[in-house]
């Protein structure tokens, strides 16, 4: 069982809860969601509690993440988009910390489950649609009708725009989910090679050096991917929110 690379994604119930035939159990996934939120929240809260005019190292990490997300959102959606700053910042921090916690051995990776990433993506797209219609009414539909397109090809263009809009939540969620899932499986497989090769005696131990190096390198790569995917998720969120703020192309 321990060699099974899929085992790490198994969800196990810690506190069974069932309401109306639906299973709302507190699982290891739930526990790591709580851990993610607690870690991120505690870090941001505690490092800024001194409100230093000259920031300590940890305080400047919090400030840097704040300014990083703020400039990302301002570049993509302008100052009007800054009202979504808490949402984008929460998403970025949640995904980043969940990915990073998942890198610790034996820890569960919350973002390796498609339903979690899909729910986050739907939150983004839902915000875009609701805010777009609330702010601009039917003018929000101009999003699907680029100006300056000849009448003859307009239906085609609208169809393409519509499909691309509908595929956004899918691409947004699958990108994050697949990256985390594939990365963790690859790590597990290479790490599994080490143990199974070294069980073969002296020659095997010599041969196990290669997957060991591979595992070390992949671990570094996975840390990069963890950050990068959180960044990509936040950037795309900013760009989609820009459509809600400025619907006409």
């Amino acid at each position: 069982m321990a060699d099974d690379p899929i085992h790490q994604f198994q969800i196990s119930k810690w506190i069974p809860i069932e309401v109306g035939g639906l299973d709302f159990s507190f699982t290891n996934s739930s526990a790591f969601m709580v851990a993610t939120v607690a870690t991120a929240g505690a870090f941001l809260y505690l490092t800024t509690s001194s409100r230093g005019l000259i920031p300590s190292r940890l305080q400047s990490v919090s400030e840097m993440s704040y300014e990083f997300v703020a400039s990302m959102l301002r570049d993509a959606a302008g100052t009007k988009g800054m009202r979504f700053f808490p949402l984008v910042f929460s998403l970025f921090m949640f995904v980043l910390v969940a990915n990073m916690l998942g890198m610790i051995p034996y820890f569960f990776t919350v973002t390796s489950h498609i339903i979690v990433t899909f729910a986050l993506a739907m939150l983004v797209i839902g915000t875009v649609v609701v805010y777009g219609f609330w702010k601009h009414g039917l003018k929000f539909l101009h999003l699907f009708v680029p100006s300056g397109v000849p009448k003859a090809v307009l239906p085609m263009v609208v169809l393409i725009e519509l499909i691309s809009f509908l595929s956004r939540p899918v691409s947004l969620s699958v990108r994050l989910f697949a990256n985390m899932l594939a990365g963790h499986i690859t790590l597990k497989v290479f790490a599994g090679f080490i143990t199974s090769l070294s069980a073969l005696g002296a020659l095997g131990i010599g041969g196990a050096i290669l997957p060991l190096f591979m595992t070390v390198a992949l671990t570094g790569l996975e840390f990069l991917v963890s950050f990068l995917q959180a960044y990509v998720f936040a950037v795309l969120t900013c760009m989609y929110l820009n459509d809600a703020v400025h619907p006409s192309h």
């Binding site: 969800i11 809860i17 639906l22 299973d23 709302f24 159990s25 507190f26 699982t27 996934s29 739930s30 969601m33 709580v34 993610t36 939120v37 991120a40 929240g41 941001l44 809260y45 808490p86 949402l87 910042f89 929460s90 921090m93 949640f94 919350v110 489950h113 339903i115 979690v116 729910a119 986050l120 939150l123």
Partner: peptide
Amino acid sequence: TYPSQILWLAITFGLFYLFLQ
């Protein structure tokens, strides 16, 4: 496992969002 994950994600992320905001 979806209902449980969605529920707990909503709870934790919602609290996180409120706390940050």
